[in-house]
Design a protein around this nucleic acid. Structure first.
Lengths: 329, 329
DNA sequence: GCTTGCCGTGAGAGCGCTCCCAGGTATGGG
DNA sequence: CCCATACCTGGGAGCGCTCTCACGGCAAGC
């Protein structure tokens, strides 16, 4: 940091200042190959004297490595990107990528648009792809060029490892809790029906209701609070004897609670409401929301790590989901 | 996309396939300089026949452009990164950056560690820096090398343009609303006191209380719900006649409401509670939260745009904040 | 016919870095 | 004393791209 040159120091500057060749400087700073202690010393001291910061871009170019991790969210429209869940994933990935000199890009993947995925595979600046909300069809469109550097948060395939919360276990726990508390007319407000990973909860719900001889009552939601409110109203209109609502997300559940309250329906006295995700606000809502945990940050970190390190991972990694019984159910 | 070669096509491949030089291909695909319609045609058709995707890394290297936008969050410890507000900013930035071939990295900036900022300025792979939660001292440490490609979400300086919500206006609106509703013993639960941009709300609060001849009652918070709950309890212990709590964030307010409810204190009947941010859950909490809007995504997008395009921007861009009167106050 | 100018083109020099490879210098064994 | 075997070093090619520069061709003007 002695001569405050306009342009930042390059490896050549360091090598010259240390009186060695660029190759030697690279070996020392890159931490590979041989280098005498003397050379090592002079290079490192020259490097921090000049305030040398390696140019990740050049390094990536020569190594053939990418510099961007693309988080691609499948959905019917770009509004899918406006979602706290997506925010959380992107943020966790961005945090993990920082020390690797990698940045995160976020984009919408129109449902069934394989071309975009192919481009991603051919883009040498992309070191990996994190898929969110994928469908089976979309997974089939993942090109071979992406193999080993793609992961899915949700469902996976033979070529795409999956990372997700154990939806089935969480839903099962919540529904059994509802049942144990005497609820029998349980309506489920689902996520978008095209969303494969969310369908698992639905399957569990259906199986459980059928085996208990209870009616299957489904209302389609979209994970938003507004939709959750409307879904709750719809449910009560169609089935006035409803005594519990199981929402596929906390946001939906919170919306449902607000709507019920607006109609003078007491939660959980008249209708119990349970969600899924255990978002921070679940604990402070009133009544406090009964839900199942969803370790989003952990899932995102694991998926991003797998993609970043290109390590072989099991085809499916399920993160446990535990019941959090609070007041609403 | 005819020969599915193992390695993705390069500009040379395209040039060769089109029967032109790399320079011509670059001119056509880069959209600059002259090129005959014939050449233009052959190059573009060859490009999409081969499924050519430009290598952003190489382009950035030769252009001297960066490939990463670093979101640096100042704070006492790395836990500051676990925050929906940060998530939101990162996500908005990542979305904006995607089409530019830029990725977002997220890192913690320990309070008063200028070295990290200097490194960021000397890092050629960094195209810009978005500062969050900066202090005056931190802004002084921003190196000249970062000039023109740094922005602050919060307070700014001569060298660092600021983008922030109009904290003062929002706080003013909320407090006047509280006052208009007859509240006189108003406690403010602040953000972290070292956080300069949050101090503006405090200043407004103090000024308003003094001019109205009301007592100034401050409890320090940290924007979290847990802290909000404890702060509310503390406030009631110290000042049992409290009739309103103004929290510097919705999360804090929600925590306060939960804690009050736990103590059997009715909101807003006994104590009114207002927040700031208008997060999605504010609308569905019970009682629905009275608050002031905080267009985080808009702010982040504007700041990221300024950094990305390197355009000259006014030293301060204030985003309006409007009162949202709901039930809690 | 020859200059003037302009458009279109390709050669080639890098951007900053990694890493292969050839060469060089100590050290040890025969 | 010589050669094998380390260890160390620098030259240099090249990652994929942009962009300057010089050159060839062609129409217009004298």
């Amino acid at each position: 940091m002695d001569t405050p040159t306009a342009r930042p120091a390059t490896l050549d500057d360091v090598a010259q200042a240390a009186g060695v060749s660029r190759a030697t400087a690279s070996r020392v700073l890159g931490g590979y190959g041989f280098a005498s202690p003397a050379a090592r010393d002079r290079v490192t001291s020259a490097a921090d004297r000049l305030g040398y910061v390696p140019n990740t871009t050049a390094r990536a170019l020569v190594r053939g490595a990418g510099v961007r991790l693309v988080v691609a969210v499948a959905g019917t429209d770009a509004a899918i990107l406006d979602d706290p869940y997506v925010d959380r994933v992107v943020s966790a990935a961005a945090r993990l990528c920082a020390p690797h000199g990698v940045g995160v890009a976020l984009e919408w993947l129109p449902l069934s648009s394989p071309a975009r995925l192919r481009r991603l595979g051919d883009d040498r600046s992309v070191c990996g792809v994190l898929l969110i909300n994928t469908t089976e069809r979309m997974l089939d469109a993942v090109p071979a060029t992406l193999r080993g550097r793609v992961a899915s948060i949700g469902i996976g395939s033979a070529a795409v490892p999956a990372f997700d919360v154990d939806n089935a276990a969480g839903s099962d726990a919540v529904l059994r809790h509802l049942h144990a508390n005497g609820r029998r007319r349980i309506v489920m407000v689902t996520g978008p029906r095209w969303l494969s990973c969310a369908e698992r909860s639905v399957t569990v719900y259906q199986a459980l209701m059928r085996s208990a001889g209870l009616p299957v009552r489904l209302v389609t939601g979209d994970f938003t609070a507004a939709r959750g409110g409307r879904a709750a109203m719809e449910a009560l209109t169609r089935w006035p004897d409803t005594d519990a609502i199981y929402a596929a997300s906390d946001t939906t559940a919170l919306g449902a609670i607000a709507a019920l309250r607006g109609r003078g329906i007491r939660v959980p006295h008249d209708v119990a409401v349970a969600g899924f995700d255990d978002i921070p606000y679940a604990a402070v809502s009133s009544p406090a929301l009964t839900t199942a945990t969803h370790p989003v940050a952990g899932i995102a970190t694991a998926a991003a790590t797998a993609v970043l390190e290109g390590r072989r991972v099991p085809p499916v990694t399920a993160f446990p989901s535990a019941l959090v019984a609070r007041e609403s159910a």
